[in-house]
């Protein structure tokens, strides 16, 4: 008797959509290939889940890659405790809906010492609550591979990163001594304690991400869509003013306007843009005429030129 997929009980059965265009299909195929290869070659993979649009695409691809099976690894969210409220709500809803194993990690030391982006500066805060926290979580889980949603078009140092990015036991990246990567034949051999960060979205651009979200109808945190929201202007950025921990500085006042976010991180460090794009079509239309790159809203990239490379060498994603 032939075995058939219909006989198997499958949670969240797929829905019918028009086929992807060949460009997105090629990117999707590549990402699925990478997911399967890492899941097969490593003992204990994990997927870094930041709740943002790239993570949402990454998760969608993981579900596709392993269908009709479950996603065979947990999702790890490094919670700095300074994320947007809507992000956390979205995270918990998605984990429940898709039957995912979700691991949430917060740097206890940082939290106890009350390290905040306001009191300690963005660089130190990021180092403790993101980079250090990530390393703690990876060590605690004993993960030998970690999927990330980084793309090569995001930032100059990422343009050179491999799809399998090798890390030393203390999570260091050595950009000058990367393993050559030819064809789609990936070298997953490592020693105990070493690990690999795997980037299935390496060859995607920001426009690809949005077009894929549209084509596949992928749910996103509503902050990506414009709505009238309270904000304050600080250092040339619009900071969302809904968290009570945001203290107004002299001269600052809460304003209201139609804003949205192109990337999501910690709310005090992520600037909004003025926009009326309240749905996907409008966001994409806006993006195609945008003249500013998406990471422009991120404070941590601007501390100094080459700052992303420095953070990556130290273990940041």
């Amino acid at each position: 008797m032939p075995l058939s997929v219909q006989e198997t009980e499958i949670k969240n059965p797929p829905v019918s959509r028009p086929p992807l265009d060949p460009h997105l299909k090629a990117l999707e195929n590549e990402a699925i290939h990478i997911f399967r290869e890492v899941a097969a070659e490593f003992d204990n993979p994990v997927m870094l889940y930041s709740i943002g649009k790239d993570s949402s695409v990454l998760l969608h691809l993981a579900r596709k890659a392993f269908y009709p099976g479950r996603v065979p690894f947990p999702l790890l969210h490094v919670d700095t405790t300074w994320k947007f409220k809507e992000m956390i709500e979205f995270r918990d809803r998605i984990a429940d809906e898709y039957d995912l194993d979700l691991v949430v990690h917060t740097n206890k030391r940082g939290a106890e010492e009350n390290i905040t982006p306001f009191t300690h500066g963005s660089a130190f805060y990021t180092d403790v609550m993101k980079t250090e926290a990530l390393k703690q979580a990876l060590d605690a889980g004993g993960y030998d591979a970690a999927f990330g949603g980084a793309r090569r078009d995001e930032e100059a140092s990422r343009a050179k990163e491999r799809i399998y990015s090798f890390r030393t036991p203390d999570h260091k990246w050595d950009p000058r001594n990367q393993r050559p990567e030819l064809w789609n034949v990936y070298n997953g051999m490592i020693r105990k304690g070493e690990s690999v960060r795997a980037f299935p979205l390496s060859n995607w651009t920001e426009v690809d991400i949005w077009r894929y979200i549209q084509a596949e109808d992928i749910p996103l945190v509503p902050l990506y869509y414009a709505a009238t929201r309270p904000y304050v202007e600080r250092d040339g950025m619009m900071i969302l003013a809904e968290d009570l921990r945001l203290e107004l500085l002299p001269g600052e006042e809460v304003q209201h306007g139609s804003i949205r976010f192109r990337t999501l991180g910690c709310f005090p460090l992520t600037g909004a843009i003025r926009s009326t794009a309240s749905n996907l079509d409008e966001v994409i239309a806006e993006l195609e005429i945008a003249t500013v790159s998406e990471r422009q809203g991120r404070v941590i990239d601007r501390d100094q030129s080459g700052s992303m490379e420095k953070k990556k060498r130290e273990g940041y994603f």
């Binding site: 040339g236 619009m238 009326t276 239309a285 195609e288």
Partner: peptide, 15 residues
């Protein structure tokens, strides 16, 4: 020209 608040985008025409 490079501050976020200056990124005022026009009504999205259907590109």
């Amino acid at each position: 020209a490079h501050t976020a608040s200056a990124t005022i985008l026009p009504f999205a025409e259907s590109v």
